[in-house]
Structures are given as C-alpha cells and as structure tokens.
Amino acid sequence: MNIFRLFGDLSHLAAIIILLLKIWKSRSCAGISGKSQILFAIVFTTRYLDLLTSFISLYNTSMKMIYIGCSYATVYLIYAKFRATYDGNHDSFRVEFLIVPVGGLAVLINHDFSLLEILWTFSIYLESVAILPQLFMISKTGEAETITTHYLFCQGLYRALYLINWIWRFYFEGFFDMIAIVAGVVQTILYCDFFYLYVTKVLKGKKLSLPA
C-alpha cells in the first residue's frame, strides 16, 4: 500500500460520506442523481463479491463493507426516505445505454471467463461511467450546489490518485492490471472538465453554474 493508494481510498470514502451527510443534514436529495447512486451500488455489489471467497486484510474487508453499506444507505435516502425531494425529471439519463454495452464488454474482455471475474470486470467498466447520469443532470439544470461539487471533486481525485498509484506499482512492484488502468483513465478523463470548473469557480467561492 502506497500513499497515493491510501489517499485515493480516503478520498473515495470522503466523497461517499460527504454525499450521505449532505442528504441527511439538508433532508433533501435535490440535485443528486439517484441513477448514478444506483449504479455505484451495483458497482460495489458486483466488485466485492470476493468478500465471500477471499480474505485480504482487515483494512480491505472493512473498507469494502463501508462502501457497500454507505452506497445502499444513499440509495435508500434518495428513493425512500427523502423521495419527495428527488428530482426525477432532471435525472433522465438512460442507464440501459451504459449497463448493456458495459455488460457486453465485460463478457468479451476480461482476465478470466468465470462468473466472479466477469462481474468484477463489469464493475470496473461500470464504475468508469457511473457518474455520467450525475454530470448529465448538472448539465441539464446548469448548476450544482457547492457541496455536490465537493462530492464530485473527491470522486475524481480518488481516481486520479489511483492512476498515480498504478504508475507507482508498475515501477516498484512490476504490477499492472490493464483492465483497471484503461477504465481508470477513462473515468478520470470524464472528470477533467469538471475539475476545471471546480478550480476556476468553486475554489474562488462561486457557485458552479454553467453558461446558458
């Protein structure tokens, strides 16, 4: 475990908790894409099935359980507890356009043609695009609450730190996983436009709003 990986995980955890707290404290999920959150719940569920088959470390097991638990809690808050505040009309991204191609790709390109491995691959591919409904929603409404942008920044930072972690691991451990790396690059690229807006607007104290 190197420092980039650790801070990547912590950034990921921060993103998840920021979102949960935002919804809980404001008693509202306005501006949050429930579809993206369902996709993340699917991502964690299909990726961490190895909780049942192999033990890696206490850190690994506990982080996986926290990620899964928080993602289901978020989905519950959006679709049950604070459903009245859910902005379904603006959350109109067609997720089947993500799930179907990603599922097909996972069956075609994987490390091993076994159920667990295909589901893991599916989760890696799906994670790389799972934020799209959220970004689509922001582009539709033209704005995002500042706390939502902090969430997105932590999500993007997590993937960027993982990229540095993989460069590190390649040089010092000879480790690389092409599927994870390609998907991670795609995922990070999706955040670049947002990073730019975050730095030029949100960090200067302005609300994130897109030009009409």
Binding site: R5, H12, D50, N60, K64, D112, N165, A180
Partner: peptide, 10 residues
C-alpha cells in the same frame, strides 16, 4: 495468460 489473483485494491 494472467491467473486470477486476489484483488487487493478497492
């Protein structure tokens, strides 16, 4: 061909 190894990353 890569063998399936435990995934230590999250």
């Amino acid at each position: 061909e890569e063998e399936a190894k435990p995934k230590d990353e999250l």
